[in-house]
Design a protein around this nucleic acid. Structure first.
Length: 656
DNA sequence: ATGGGAAGCGCC
DNA sequence: TGGGCGCTTCCCAT
């Protein structure tokens, strides 16, 4: 491939070409659906995912494809090249699209008679249709988003497909309430709605996406080839025709059923079982959301808005530009900025650059950014409802971490956490201490790190002691911070440069050669880490999949340093998050209050004031820490009147 | 008017 | 040339 930048082939142009070739494209809130009237496949692409050329190949061969058009344009270009040959021009792409074939018959838009009797082991596929959401913000309909509404629930059993409007509660409950396995396609979403409508689901929960997530680390936003669909029509937005919605819903349930493979070994895998138990619980957390103190949020909001006005006035004295625009800021600060450039060829004006900048506007702009973020991303959206809800998903991250969307409950600033809580209740925080480092020590079989964890020592301080050649008791706070920086950076492929950057964010300063010395010393102190990283690189080069201790797999092409570092990180991060989910499962039924949030290595619980019982929580924390004997986890337990005011009570776990 | 990409920043 | 997420704003193309 020549180094010359290829001619752009915009997504909209591709869609237009597809449409010309008789491919039906329908705009939906969640993206654009491309519908070909022939067999059938669903895939979704998103920017952070390494997509497979097969995806577009399938599309161009006339499969039924759903694309989330979040991928960068050059990614589309690479696919086009791979599919239609190097140097593909739009005309060649059009020629490839021309291979789209006219279709075979699909399922008709009619409903079957619901069966009177269902054999007990027969899987029942369930699909929910909803309407509403905020299209401009890509927010799908959710119970807490107004306007949003449950329209109908569809079912598919064996060769039968049928649906009921949401008002027909008796019939919906009749089929949800059987002991048959219930099959969903991205279950959390349907579960949130069914839970909100107070339906009771009996039988085990299955999801057609889980096995794929375990097998190749595909998130819901990632590449998702889900198999053969027999009904490939998509529902137009805002259709007033209930009959049409019902048939669509039933046919989609049918599609879901066709994707379900009950004989897959994954269906009996411990992680799959875990997801079956956790999915309804996570849906419940999503629906409940975080309670907050409205008066506090309003006060903080007013304060922040006033501060923004003051800062804007101050900046206006310096230059009358849009200080949110990186381009305009770069133009004003010019020579005062450090000589760094973004991948897109623009001057870097991020916070780190501003801190190095002598210009009088820099300090003011830093504060403006901070307050702007707090107002725009957090406080203003919070005030729109009486609680803060986000859709927590089990399989959006390739590593198996949970994530939270449509308000992210996992990145709320520490400074705002004191706004969350409930009158008459206390907030209990259960937190895995240094979870990823423990997992890394186990996976790499690092004897010294493991010994420290087993003995309950502070690993960062011990690391610092090794690096600075002094007794661990005389390690200073700054030296410990260096140790922490090294531990987190070097496990996953960090360089001397990244160590310096990280250290700067901790308020430490040292030179590149110093960082290089620390790096060498770290690998010398932990020879098993060196060996483990080398072994992972060998697997990558040999094309072997990367595996986690719990059996997740990732096939990663070793093309770039990013992918090599991903291979180092994925099994560690995923194991740490699986441990938290396993721990949450282990303690769920003995918790004295509802779980209100999950933040990667933290579980948050609300309890009525005055019911704190240390012995009870010690027991809970012990169960949590001992969830898997291979991993010497420690759990920190804190309690307080709100999320931000929790105070650590004790630590439970190995050697405590 | 609308949507995608880039930059930036919040968290673990 | 640590990883993993999601959200907002600006800018530009359609």
């Amino acid at each position: 491939m020549s180094s010359q930048k290829p001619t752009a082939y915009p997504v909209a142009r591709l869609l237009l070409d597809l449409r010309r070739q008789g491919v039906q494209t329908i705009q939906r809130t969640s993206g654009v659906a491309l519908v070909c009237p022939r067999h059938v496949r669903t895939l979704e692409l998103q920017s952070r995912v390494q997509v497979n050329a097969l995806a577009l190949a399938d599309l161009l061969q006339g499969l039924h494809v759903t694309l989330h058009l979040g991928i960068p344009e050059d990614a589309w270009w690479r696919h086009l090249e791979q599919v239609a040959g190097t140097g593909t021009k739009p005309t060649a792409a059009r020629a490839a699209v021309a291979t789209v074939l006219a279709g075979k018959p699909m399922l008709p838009d009619t409903l079957d008679e619901p069966p009177a009797m269902i054999p007990e082991t027969e899987p029942v596929a369930v699909d929910v249709e909803t309407i509403g959401g905020v299209a401009s913000d890509h927010r799908v309909p959710l119970p807490w988003v107004d306007p949003s509404e449950l329209v109908c629930v569809g079912f598919s059993i064996a060769n039968c497909r049928f649906a009921f409007p949401a008002s027909d509660r008796a019939n919906i409950q009749r089929f949800l309430g059987t002991s048959n396995p219930k099959v969903f396609h991205n279950a959390i979403y349907d579960l949130v709605w069914l839970l909100d409508a107070a339906f009771e689901i009996r039988g085990s929960v299955h999801d057609t996406l889980w096995s794929r997530a375990f097998e190749n680390g595909a998130g819901v936003h990632g590449l998702k080839v889900t198999g053969t669909f027999t009904y490939a029509v998509h529902l137009p937005e805002k259709t007033p025709d209930l009959a049409k919605v019902l048939t669509y819903c039933a046919n989609d349930a049918r599609n879901t059923l066709s994707l379900f493979n009950p004989t897959s070994p994954w269906c009996s895998h411990p992680l799959y079982r875990l997801y079956q138990r956790m999915a309804p619980r996570v849906a419940a957390i999503s629906r409940t959301g975080l309670p907050f103190f409205r008066d506090r949020v309003e006060a903080r909001y007013a304060e922040a808005v006033a501060r923004v006005a003051w800062l804007d006035a101050a900046l206006g004295q310096i230059a009358r530009i849009n200080w949110r625009s990186a381009d305009q800021v770069a133009h004003v600060l010019e020579e005062a900025l450090p000589n760094r450039w973004t991948p897109g060829g623009q001057r870097v004006v991020d916070d780190a650059a501003l801190r190095e900048c002598e210009h009088p506007a820099a300090a003011v702009l830093l504060e403006k950014r901070e307050v702007d973020k707090v107002v725009g991303t957090y406080l203003r959206p919070f005030l729109q409802r009486d609680r803060v809800c986000g859709l927590i998903t089990l399989n959006a991250a390739r590593t198996g971490r949970t994530s939270s969307r449509y308000t992210n409950l996992q990145n709320i600033p520490r400074s705002l956490r004191t706004l969350f809580g409930k009158a008459g209740h206390d907030w209990v925080k259960l937190d895995f201490a240094a979870a990823e480092l423990v997992v890394a020590a186990v996976v790499a079989e690092c004897s010294s790190l493991l010994a420290w964890f087993r003995e309950g020592k502070d690993p960062h301080a011990e690391t610092a002691a090794r690096i600075f050649h002094k007794p661990s008791l005389s390690v200073t706070a700054e030296e410990r911070a260096v140790g922490k920086t090294l531990n987190f950076s070097l496990c996953y492929g960090g360089t001397a440069r990244t160590i310096v950057q990280r250290a700067t964010s901790y308020g430490l300063a040292f030179s590149l050669p110093e960082a290089a010395t620390f790096r060498t010393a770290w690998f010398a102190a932990f020879p098993e880490m060196t060996a483990w990283q080398a072994e992972t690189m060998r697997q990558l080069e040999d094309g072997e999949p990367i595996r986690s201790p719990f059996g997740r797999m990732w096939t990663i092409p070793p093309h770039s340093s990013h992918e090599r570092n991903m291979a180092l990180n994925a099994p560690i991060q995923s194991t740490a998050s699986d441990l938290l989910l396993l721990a949450a499962d282990a303690i769920w039924d003995v918790l004295p209050g509802p779980v209100v949030n999950l933040v990667h290595d933290e579980v948050d619980v609300l309890i009525p004031k005055g019911t704190w019982d240390e012995a009870q929580w010690r027991d809970i924390a012990r169960r949590m820490a001992g969830v898997d004997a291979r991993f010497p986890m420690r759990v920190e337990v804190a309690v307080g009147p709100d999320w931000g005011a929790t105070v650590e009570q004790f630590v439970e776990g190995v050697s405590v």
